[in-house]
Amino acid sequence: MSDASTTKSGGFPNPLAWTGRGTLALFAEIGRLSMFSGRTALSALTPPWNLAQLWKQIIAIGFYSLPVVGLSAVFIGAALALNIYTGGNRFGAEQFVPNIVVLGITRELGATITGLMLAGRVTAGIAAEIGAMKVTEQIDALKTLSANPFRYLYAPRFLAAALTLPLLVLIADIIGVMGGWLVSVYALDFDSTTYIRNTMDFLTMEDVAVGLIKAVIFGMVIALMGCYQGSKSSAGATGVGRAATLSMVGAAVLVLAANYILSTFFVQIGI
């Protein structure tokens, strides 16, 4: 339908109306997401907790993500070591491979890669599951049976992701550093003992803590995007598919944005 506010006389869209409408829609979406996030966080942080659902989600989000996180980390660590070696070679700085690998993995790549992999595996899964529940009236059924979807569905996923992401990142850190060690020792002729000693000497608790704090935030983002998009999924297979896609893309972008903001914050406070 065209009207005077949205089209010029020639039938072309009025750019001002189009921009205005887009801006209003964006703010409305941010408002809805903020309200949803607030209610989910409140339900997650206040009793009663649904421990059975929480445990189920810890297994689904944490345990079943171990293979994908482990494999991603080992390849990232290995590729990082190779690239640092190649770059360092130009300045005669190859000996810094273990230091830069452990710094890069613990502060940045362990958390980011884990966040991105889970944005794909977990966020889309949550959105599809909740979306399917919505279109088959299961969420309405929950309400009529006096179960609050925020407490029964969203809060356990939010808490499970926030609790398990740091553990997954810790594992990714260890496996990622190991990937760098494997390549360095077996392909780049580094001495194993020296490599490990350099890694341990350079590693600080602050570097590990930075990655783990990021992981908690990424976990929240991942669960919230899945739950939010799933909860507003429209009817049919297309609606559920769209919710899964939007949730995954949204979570991936927000994980990267949050990573930059948190990195800036940690640099500012000198960690």
Binding site: A132, M133, T136, E137, Q138, D140, A141, T144
Partner: peptide, 13 residues
């Protein structure tokens, strides 16, 4: 105090 039978059954998978 109410019961509801949904069109699709709406049983939890």
């Amino acid at each position: 105090r109410i019961g509801m039978l949904f069109q699709s059954g709406a049983l939890f998978d």
